Each structure stands twice: as C-alpha cells, then as structure tokens.
Amino acid sequence: MDIVKGDILDYTGLVKAMKDCDVVYHLAARISIIGDRQGMVRRINVKGTQNIIRACRECRIRRLIHFSSIHAYSPFPLNQYIDETRSFSNARSPAYDCSKADGAREVLEAVKSGIDAVVISPTAVIGPNDFKPSRMGNVLIKLYQRKFISLIKGGYDWVDARDVVRGALLAEEKAEAGSQFILSGHWSSIREIAEIIREMRGIKPPFFTAPLWLASLAVPFSEAAALLRRKNCLLTSEALRALRTHQFISRRRAEECLGYSPRPLKVTIRDTIEWLEKKGFLD
C-alpha cells in the first residue's frame, strides 16, 4: 500500500494521485456538529466532491464509491423508516447535513453524464483502529473513564467501521451505477451503550439521564468551555438534534442487493474498547 498525502481542494494533486487507478473510494469529508463557521464544511464536502468527480472523468476511473452519510437524508417524518427513497436534507438542516446531501446530489448528477458511481451512506461509525480518536470514539472513552456526570436521552444507529468497509467493497463489486445504499448497524441509546460497557468491564455509568430539553440548557456553557480549552465540543445543539433523529433506518436494500450484514453491536463495543485500551486511550 502506498500512502500519498494530498488536498481534496487541489485538483491537480488529485489527478496526479488518481492516475492509473481503477476504483476511487471517496471518504474525505469535514464532519461538524458546530455549523460551518469558516466555510470549510461546504468547501470540502461539496467543492471537494466536485473535484473528485472531475478527476475521475479525466483519469477514466472505472468506478467511484462515494461515502455520503445518513445525515444526507431528511429525518422527517421522525416516526417513519428512512430508506434510499427518502428526500435529501434541505437548507433548514444543519450545515453538515446539507453539505453531504449536496455532495451526494453532485455524484448522482454526474452518473447521468457517464460517471460510474455508487453512493453509500453509513450511520454513526465506531470500531477499532480509531486513531484520532473520532467524536464517537471519544464518547466511548469518556463513558469508560466515567467523565460524564450525566447521560443524555437519545441515541444513534451505530455501525462498525469494518462492516462499512465490507459494504463499500460489495458495492464496488455488485452495485449498479447510480444506486444508493444505506449501511446501518443497530440503534442504541447512550444509556444502553453505557450498560454494555458496564456488563463487559464493570464500569458503572452515571445514574441520571438528562432529557434533551435540559441538556440544551448546558449547550452554551459546553461550547464556551471547549473553545477556551481548544478541544472538540461533544455537547452542541446539532449533536442533540442528531440524538433524537434518524432512529428508524432500513438497510434492506443493502442486505438484498449486496449481501450486507452488520455484526452485533456488543461485538463492536468489545473490540473497540479492547483496541482503545491497547493503544493507551483509556489510561
């Protein structure tokens, strides 16, 4: 494997990196739960995707696998299952959601002009080999270290990164050009995740679970503290929105067309905790 550093906004560099490639897996994105204050979310997720499409055309790439997000799809109505027929997020949605929706639109529009591309949309990705670690990885770390004084009502559909990779490889092999696939895992509340960790490691979670309205009162203080400490903020208004949306998600198309099947959530949590421990993140 050759690792080449680049910039998705550098078109010339993309062409150089993609020369003689057969398939491109486009994962580069800026994730944000604090809006798009400097414009980089939209530049990377939309303009960057436009660059990828253009470079694929110039380099005659056989197939493009574009990684979108479940947040590209509108969460409304909340009580109905989301599948690939759901409309995309609109301008009233958070900046990240809008950018992923527009990026997916760019790819699907490019298919009409001859680009062979498939769009896959994972849910909340967790798993081992989380080197940064990600925001989701930090949630597990803080649960393990008992750094939360309270949990928050709500949850996510959690999917193992290894299952997302397998789904992407299956999409490259089996999918029709222009198709979309939701790669989901299992919805679980933050409380249920904490209980899984207690079951495995004996780590007692906080007793209290704050309703979303109460947690929202703490958002300004959480954001200010993160800014002062120059750290990523986990408690924002957009994070709270995510906790209460995208709960009912269908992966039927991926199961039927690709043979996709996510592993049990407990296996993902176990493997992730073991990896984080091995790398010293839980010390």
Rank of each mutant, 00 (worst) to 15 (best):
A101Q: 10
I149P: 14
A194H: 00
G154C: 02
P77L: 05
P205I: 06
A168M: 13
N232S: 12
V41Y: 08
I31Y: 02
I82K: 07
R105W: 00
P75G: 02
I33G: 00
G185K: 12
S32P: 07
R105C: 03
D160F: 02
P262I: 03
G6Y: 06
P75D: 13
R230E: 15
A175I: 01
D283I: 10
R86Y: 06
L9K: 03
V4F: 07
F248P: 01
K204T: 14
S188I: 01
A101L: 07
K132Y: 08
G259R: 09
Q38H: 11
L151G: 00
I182P: 06
M200V: 03
S87Q: 14
V125Y: 02
I149K: 11
M40I: 14
G259N: 07
I203P: 00
Y81W: 09
G48P: 06
A225R: 07
S87C: 11
P220V: 02
A28R: 05
S89H: 02
I82N: 04
I196A: 02
T236K: 12
T85E: 13
S121M: 05
S250L: 09
V23C: 03
G155A: 09
G127W: 06
S261M: 15
E58A: 15
H26A: 13
K174Y: 11
K204N: 06
D130G: 09
P205F: 14
I249C: 11
A28P: 02
I120C: 13
V15N: 15
R191G: 08
A226Y: 06
T123E: 00
L27H: 12
F76N: 06
K279M: 13
A104Y: 00
I52A: 09
A177H: 09
E58T: 13
V125P: 03
R92F: 09
A110S: 12
A242M: 11
D36H: 08
V107N: 01
S179R: 14
V125K: 00
K5R: 11
S150I: 00
F207D: 13
S74D: 09
G6W: 10
A215K: 10
E176N: 14
G155V: 01
L108W: 05
N51S: 06
E255V: 05
E84G: 06
L276V: 09
R63C: 05
S93I: 04
I53W: 03
C56M: 10
K174H: 10
E172R: 14
K47I: 10
R198P: 05
K153M: 05
R30P: 00
I31N: 03
E274R: 11
I52L: 04
R162E: 01
P128N: 05
G280E: 01
G202Q: 02
I34Y: 10
L64I: 06
A17T: 08
G6P: 04
